[in-house]
Simulated assay, not measured.
Amino acid sequence: MVVNKLCNFINDSTIMPHHRFIHFPLITFVNASFNQVSNWDNAVPVRPHWRLWWNPEPGAEIGCDAGTYALDPGHMVLVPPYVRITHRLHQPVWSLALHVEVNEPVDPGLDRVFYPELPEDMVERLQQLNERIPQGFTFTQDKNHGAWLHLFLGEIFCRALQLLPSEIWSVPARDPRVDDAVATIHSAVDTTLSNTGLARQANLSTNAFIRLFSQNMGVPPQVYMQNVRLDKAARLLQQSDESIDIVAESCGFCDRNYLSKLFKRRFGVGPARYRRQMS
């Protein structure tokens, strides 16, 4: 499986003349496409990663609780993790869609989409997709479409993030004991961890630990642990061909039915449909 990790962008005169690639913390592409869209589901599953859309022509829009945003050449729509949106298509359009994991935490209370106006040179760069790949493309992590395309999309995505307000990256410092517990949870996703065991690791009583964890993370430890497992299940559904039964077992769920119930509650659709929509 090829994992397309992009950071420390460098000069490459064959890709980006007279412009330096942007350095940004590690990002990983989950999925990317530039295709003609003639049918969009109105309800869109929640995703555990960032999403970006840009269209070279009008004819589609993305909505959320705060309003509706028309996709056009001069703007992008960027959607942070776990934000619910809807699609609406007025006519068939070409659309660039990027699904990207960003190794940089954002404000956990962030519940909005972003609609930045694009600099003229960025619009010109995006228009090159029509010139270089007139037939469009689709790739996921297990498909190799060439270094230039990965670098091009990485550049576009990183520049898009730099158009966002800097305060969204301002995450309050956490208690180091909570950081240790979070690291333990992420390192043992398929293992049942008790509040008592995590509290013992933090040298706290169970009640004091639950209270401290909830204050720092916004949810109790068992809810956080369940969400971590569901996010891992989402990644496995996107990045592997493993059966849903194997995915459930790998993520610490007793069976696929229990996974499906919790997965639909978190992402809005069941595992099978989620996988189909990411293919």
Rank of each mutant, 00 (worst) to 15 (best):
W54L: 12
P17Q: 04
N144Y: 11
M217I: 11
S187G: 14
W50I: 12
N203T: 06
Q277S: 11
L126W: 03
F114Y: 10
M16W: 14
A248K: 02
L6I: 13
V171R: 06
P165T: 06
N207M: 11
D65N: 09
V178K: 01
K264I: 00
Y274P: 04
T191D: 07
A32S: 15
Q141I: 00
G270R: 09
L71V: 07
V171D: 05
Q239H: 12
N39F: 14
K5H: 01
L236W: 00
P48L: 03
A60K: 03
P176S: 10
L237K: 11
F209P: 01
C158K: 08
T28Q: 14
V46T: 03
W40K: 06
Q127E: 15
F157H: 04
P119V: 15
W148R: 15
S38L: 01
Q215H: 09
V123I: 13
I10N: 03
S33Q: 09
P176I: 07
L118H: 12
F157L: 15
V44K: 05
A181T: 04
A97D: 07
N39P: 04
N203G: 00
I85L: 05
L110F: 04
Y69H: 14
V83S: 01
R229W: 02
V228R: 06
T196M: 05
D179P: 05
I210K: 08
I85S: 04
L89E: 02
L262C: 04
G146C: 09
H19W: 07
T138R: 08
E57P: 10
L52G: 11
S279A: 11
F152H: 14
E124R: 13
L163N: 12
A173L: 06
V3Q: 04
G154I: 06
F157I: 05
L129T: 08
Q91D: 02
V93K: 03
S170V: 03
L212H: 04
R229S: 14
K261M: 08
R47Y: 06
F267M: 01
L153V: 02
V219I: 13
V3S: 11
H87V: 07
V44Y: 05
A233N: 06
V3G: 08
L161N: 07
H19G: 11
F29E: 01
H49A: 00
T206V: 07
L164R: 04
V113W: 06
Q162S: 10
